[in-house]
């Protein structure tokens, strides 16, 4: 296993299209719920322990070699609004293109063929991590980090937030991120005994509601 592969996968410049998405931050800014570094931190903590935890479980499970199509179904059952299912699949398709070029593997080809419109992004990420020789816990870390870095980067653009302050928010959430990644990886280990029900299913009602609302905006800076 190469530690550098994890840096490549988690790098914001990895060409997987994530920069076009705010992770719900654009809607939260418009609603006046996200206004500064302090509210960015509470927003990110909430997203990490809900959507981030679910994504960490899925990614760790895919990295552990569990059936990606079953995991894709499990992701659908945990994503109750179509706006977020479409976003997850669009991001999954873009990540798939980058991953197949970066770490070619038959398992990636097979998932791309089975889900031509894209599998859920955390599932693709987990499989990409596996192809890169990374562990389930690595995959969980990478995907959980993305659930924070997306809103933090978007908040800099949307609020003209000081990038130093936004990065400090990420640093303050580092321990939370470690815990969430560990919980996701632990849950993935229980799949063999319990099936995909073992995976976290934490929901964030406001993220669901505002994602669907945001998708209906005629003009927006971010795709989600």
């Amino acid at each position: 296993m190469s530690r550098a592969a994890l840096l490549i996968l988690a790098d914001g410049r990895f060409p997987a299209g994530g920069h076009a998405h705010s992770g719900g931050a654009e809607a939260a800014v418009a609603a006046g719920r996200l206004t500064d570094a302090a509210t960015l931190e509470t927003f990110c903590r909430g997203r990490l322990h809900t959507a981030g935890l679910v994504a960490a479980g899925l990614a760790a499970a895919a990295a552990a070699g569990h059936d990606p199509l079953l995991l894709d179904d499990a992701a659908d059952a945990r994503t109750p609004v179509p706006a977020l299912r479409q976003t997850a699949r669009r991001l999954g398709r873009q990540l798939m293109r980058a991953a197949r070029a970066t770490w070619p593997a038959p398992a990636l080809d097979a998932l791309a063929a089975a889900r031509p419109r894209g599998a859920h992004q955390p599932v693709v990420l987990g499989l990409a991590a596996r192809s890169a020789g990374l562990t389930p816990l690595d995959a969980a870390h990478a995907v959980a980090y993305e659930t924070l870095s997306g809103p933090a980067t978007a908040a800099v653009r949307l609020l003209s937030l000081d990038p130093f302050d936004a990065t400090a928010v990420l640093a303050r959430l580092a321990d939370d991120l470690d815990r969430v990644a560990r919980r996701g990886a632990d849950a993935a280990e229980r799949i063999t005994a319990e099936g995909t029900d073992a995976l976290p299913a934490a929901s964030a009602p406001l993220l669901d509601i505002t994602a669907q609302q945001h998708a209906a905006w005629p003009v927006r800076l971010f795709a989600s």
């Binding site: 719920r33 509470t42 903590r45 990490l48």
Partner: peptide, 20 residues
Amino acid sequence: DQETAYGPGATGWDSTAVLG
């Protein structure tokens, strides 16, 4: 498949991303 966790012992629930 949905899980909610609120109150003491849960983290992040009283957040602008979850309940606002």
